[in-house]
């Protein structure tokens, strides 16, 4: 009996740290297999592309902890970049200051993202609609909206230089700004989730919504927080992504939700709600970024990469199932 409990305990700890172990193994394997994986420049590049998706993954983590899901984040990426570009293009054409135009565009994009998040929370809370399907709907809605506001033409070179710098620039010429933004946001999310009543309420609502409601926790507030946070983080990711290529296109980010879900789930967040950590997601972000980067360096066929990414999501769900089983 005692032995069985011990075995369970070992299994539990193993499952909790398996992501770190896998990360180390993959890094070592790529280091041996390729010449240019273990270079500072490559690492900075892989972290930069990972950081943009990672921002969304942070939001996805909070939504999953609350026991909900948001699949619309990909469209928000394209839409938020498009808002900025449209404002820049039209206001500059009308003779306004470019910086002011850009800031107004960003503000509008963030307010819109917050409204979408609030809408998700409201529809879920008021009518008990499944967020899975609701956010599939808003995904289409935002995708179409992004294409319409630019008359179906991508907008290149509309941004002021400082905005482009957010995506392209590096601190001291080494660390890309997106990576810094990601880690700052990760620390903020970690702090909110672990050390504030807002975060603890989210865990409670995800753990058992009815019990949380009966202890006087404002359930709608918790849902609104996570749904708005994930949309705003996706909007930020959209800004950085557009800045990086100095162009806005409605199709940006379309396929990201898969990777973002993988990052959160492989990092230990359960889709059943109530458990998961921001730290785990940060590890998940690095692991998925390393894998994607490794496949590119190894020159794998792009469609093979799709197969692998799909398999990773399913694999991380299996891992999640085992974690949930051993958690009690």
């Amino acid at each position: 009996m005692n032995e069985r409990i011990n075995k369970k305990k070992i299994m539990y700890h193993f499952l909790n740290h398996v992501t770190e172990i896998v990360l180390i193994l993959v890094v070592i394997a790529l280091w041996i297999a390729t010449d240019n994986f273990m270079t500072l420049n490559n690492w900075m590049n892989l972290l930069r592309s990972g950081a943009i998706k990672g921002l969304i993954a942070l939001g996805v983590t909070m939504v999953l902890i609350c026991g909900k899901i948001d699949l619309s984040t990909g469209s928000q990426v394209g839409l938020s970049g498009m808002f900025v570009a449209v404002f820049c293009k039209h206001m500059v054409a009308a003779g306004h200051n470019q910086t002011a135009a850009c800031l107004i565009g960003m503000t509008v994009a963030i307010i819109f993202a917050a409204i979408i998040g609030l809408l998700h929370a409201f529809l879920q809370n008021q009518y008990d609609l499944p967020p899975f399907v609701v956010t599939l709907g808003t995904q289409y809605l935002m995708f179409g909206l992004a294409a319409i506001i630019c008359n179906n033409y991508p907008i290149p070179n509309a941004f002021p230089q400082w905005f482009v710098e957010i995506g392209m620039g590096r601190l001291f010429g080494i660390v890309p700004y997106p990576v810094i933004i990601f880690f700052v946001m990760a620390i903020i999310c970690y702090f909110v989730m672990e050390h504030t009543t807002t975060g603890r309420s989210v865990y409670a609502v995800g753990g058992n919504q009815e019990a949380a409601r009966l202890t006087g926790i404002n359930v709608f507030k918790s849902k609104a927080f996570v749904f708005i946070a994930v949309q705003i983080l996706a909007a930020l990711a959209g800004f950085i992504n557009s800045a990086q290529v100095n162009q806005a296109d409605w199709s940006y980010g379309k396929e990201w939700p898969t990777d973002c879900l993988s990052m959160a789930i492989i990092g230990g967040t359960s889709m059943a709600g109530g458990s998961g950590t921001i730290y785990g997601t940060v590890i998940g972000v690095v692991l998925i970024s390393v894998l994607i980067n490794g496949m590119t360096i190894l020159n794998w066929n792009i469609y093979l990469q799709y197969i692998v990414r799909g398999a990773i999501l399913i694999g991380s769900l299996i891992l999640m199932a085992y974690r949930d089983k051993y958690r009690d």
Partner: peptide, 8 residues
């Protein structure tokens, strides 16, 4: 089912 969050 409604008094506790069993997994916490």
């Amino acid at each position: 089912t409604t008094g506790l969050i069993l997994k916490h």
